[in-house]
Every structure is written in C-alpha cells, then in structure tokens.
C-alpha cells in the first residue's frame, strides 16, 4: 500500500430524481489498499462503486480516480475504465463469446496486445481461476460460480490498477461462493492492485481487507481499520447490522 490516492470522493452527491442516493460522500482510497464496503441493502453501496468507473454519473462534488476528474467534460472515461476493472453481481459475461474470447477481447482491441501473448495470458488466468478446461465453452454452459471466476479473469487480463467488486457472490448458490472468494483472496494477497469490494461476506472482509467502510441511507457512517470496525463499531447502525449478519 502506498500514500498515493487511487480513488478520492470529495463531497459527492448523487440523486435519482427526488431520491438522494449518495449524501456528501468523502473517501480516500490509497493505491494498493483492499477496502470492503458493507451496509444494509438500499444503502447506496452499489451506486457508490458504480460511480467510480462512470456507470453512474455524480450530480455534485468531486470524484478523482487515478488522477482523473470524473465530473470533468475533458476526462475520457475510456481511459479510466481501461485501468479500473469491475466484477458484477450477475457476471455480465459476453453471451456471444466463448470463455477464452471473453478474456481476450478487450486486451486485443483496447490494449492491442499481440495475439500470442494475449492467448498465453488468458490461458494463465483461466488456469489461475481453475477453469482452463472451460476455455472453449460458451457462458451459458457454465455454472454461476464458474461464470464469476471467468469474469474475474476477464478483468485481470486488462491488468487494471484497481478492481471493483459489486456483490460478486450475492447471486451464487452457497456451494459456489467459496471458490469465488478463494480467487479473490489470492488476488488480494498476490497483487498490489487496489480492491474495493461490496459484499455481505463478513469473514472475507475480516481476512482480506485493510479497511471497512460502512454505509447506510446513502451516507458513509464508518470508515475504519478492519480490526477496529469489527471489534468496536462506533455507530448504533453498524452494531445492529453486524449483530444481524453475524447471527445468520
């Protein structure tokens, strides 16, 4: 982890019509930091993470990602997205491409990576997520857990500076969750990539993250070191939330 900021929110506001989805968000995530974002559903976690690569536009405040100002008209959003990967709850694999093509497409088109090297990196990544034997399969032939591991490999193939995870295990059958979390743990331990993970997996948060951000009703209520957060949650909302999820 370094002292240089990767993602900075300054008084960010987001509305959907009259609904105030993000309220005066202030956050600073350093390069290489592993941060977990938790909170009850409807608290704005997904909205927040989706603003970082421009899938949602902010209405006010400043959002800096890798030095780029997202609210500025001069910023080329494609440059940010090239360096900031995203893993979705519902995988969002390309339905018209094989597993291998899902991984190789963006590096080929966006990075102009030579075909041999592209293929080699893609196969290494598939091997890393335990799916080398599924290279030729289409997405609709994979299980949910397999799809999510391919989606992670697809993001990694771009060698991003930061990787965003939007509830990556929420749509999975319980027996599939472990495999996906293992892959994510490996990435967290092996790489100096910045990771921001929206999740309800508290054990994953405890084992992997440096920091926990707790949100409720569109606000950041707590932003503390992981150990501190789980030992001594400061707000009542966080205490309630933790007691609810931990008794499951």
């Amino acid at each position: 982890m370094s002292d240089i900021s990767m993602i900075t929110f300054n008084n960010v506001e987001k509305y959907y019509g009259d609904f105030h989805a993000l309220k005066k968000i202030n956050l600073d995530i350093k390069k290489g930091e592993k941060v977990v974002l938790i909170g009850p559903s409807g608290s704005g976690k997904s909205t927040l993470i989706r603003t970082i690569n421009g899938l949602e536009e902010i209405n006010d405040g400043q959002l800096l990602v890798d030095g780029y100002d997202l609210a500025s008209d001069k910023t080329d959003i494609n440059k940010i997205r090239k360096n900031v990967g995203m893993v979705f709850q519902h995988f969002n694999l390309y339905d018209n491409k094989s597993t291998l093509e899902n991984i190789m497409l963006a590096p080929r088109i966006v990075l102009k990576r030579p075909e041999n090297e592209n293929h080699k990196i893609a196969m290494e990544l598939l091997d890393k997520v335990g799916l080398a034997d599924k290279a030729a399969n289409m997405p609709n032939e994979l299980s949910g857990g397999q799809k999510q591991r391919v989606a992670i490999a697809r993001s990694l193939a771009m060698q991003p500076k930061a990787l965003l995870f939007d509830e990556p295990t929420s749509a999975l059958d319980p027996e599939m969750i472990g495999d996906v979390l293992d892959v994510m743990k490996d990435i967290a331990q092996d790489s100096d990539m910045t990771m921001l993970v929206v999740t309800h997996e508290m054990n994953f948060a405890k084992q992997v993250s440096d920091r926990v951000i707790f949100m409720a009703d569109g606000e950041v209520l707590e932003d503390s070191k992981t150990e501190e957060f789980f030992k001594n949650p400061k707000t009542k909302r966080a205490q309630q939330f933790l007691s609810q999820v931990e008794h499951h």
Binding site: L55, R81, F88, A151, S155
Partner: peptide, 16 residues
C-alpha cells in the same frame, strides 16, 4: 444492458 456495462467496464468504448 448488462452486456454493454460489462463491455465498457472491461475497457471497450461505447462503439466497440
């Protein structure tokens, strides 16, 4: 729309 979101998040431009 998840197909478009997946692709642009992967670094492709809207046109690509």
């Amino acid at each position: 729309s998840s197909q478009m979101e997946g692709a642009v998040s992967n670094g492709l431009s809207w046109w690509q």
